[in-house]
Write a protein that binds this DNA or RNA. Structure first.
Lengths: 128, 128
DNA sequence: CACTTTGTATATCACTTACAGACAAACAGC
DNA sequence: GCTGTTTGTCTGTAAGTGATATACAAAGTG
């Protein structure tokens, strides 16, 4: 389901939240679906259950999950937020820096273009 | 020149390195060019000079800069690394998670596609 | 040769992260 | 209904990291 890199710079709880958010945005869960309990997922990922709980709480804050004690995490109906163009600015810079890193790491421009076009295709298909 | 966000999650020294790397990859500096001294850039950015020094050292480790005491940081001739396709994998996931965050933050797919296509165009022009 | 400039090294403080362990309350089986 | 288990949460803690402060050695500058 998820792959966690304990040595990565980005915190584990954020890796979990990022991974789940990606699946939620992609619509891989339906409203009402139950996510694994914090302990079950923690064992599955090999981390502490508090770490998973933190990720769940973050996604709950963002409105993706509803957390009720002893009922687990249920996927919430969440209207896709309305788009505003001034939100593109904080996205453009991370993207540019990510591309710079990739180029510096040795990826060719051609390969990067292919990756980006893949993302474009997935986006236009409504997926991620 | 650079914009630093002290409140951001990514460390300041890495923001500096990222920003400079983006300009270096884009070819905005010529080999032999001098970068500002650590103290000058530190004052300009409002951070400690050690923080800038750390960014410079990272870029030097990557081969972008040559650091000689009292001579400042000079931009090195650096052959663009050869591309290998297995390098695309560690790039795809950050990209996907970045897109997911953007979608979750309210960017429309259409807007994201436009940003990505902008990047593609810049890449194909040899810039960034 | 005195003074400034410049990158570096060491120490310190604050913050974050992941974990440990205990807890209260809802659930399951009887 | 009652008891034991399950489940998310709370509090505390040890380790690691980031940014700064400060001192230092050596090259530049007049």
């Amino acid at each position: 389901m998820l792959r966690i890199d304990l040595a990565a710079r980005v915190p584990v709880y954020e890796q979990i939240a990022n991974g789940l958010r990606a699946e939620l945005v992609a619509g891989r869960f339906d409203p009402g679906d139950r996510l694994p309990t914090v302990r079950a997922l923690a064992i599955d990922l090999g981390v502490h259950h508090n770490t998973v709980a933190q990720a769940y709480r973050q996604l709950a804050d963002e409105g993706w999950l509803e957390l009720r004690r002893h009922r687990g995490a249920t996927v919430r109906e969440r209207q896709r937020p309305s788009s505003r163009s001034d939100l593109a600015e904080p996205f453009a810079r991370p993207l540019r820096e990510l591309l710079a890193k990739a180029l510096a790491a040795g990826l060719s421009r051609k390969l990067l273009v292919r990756e980006l076009m893949d993302s474009v295709r997935r986006l236009e298909e409504g997926a991620l």
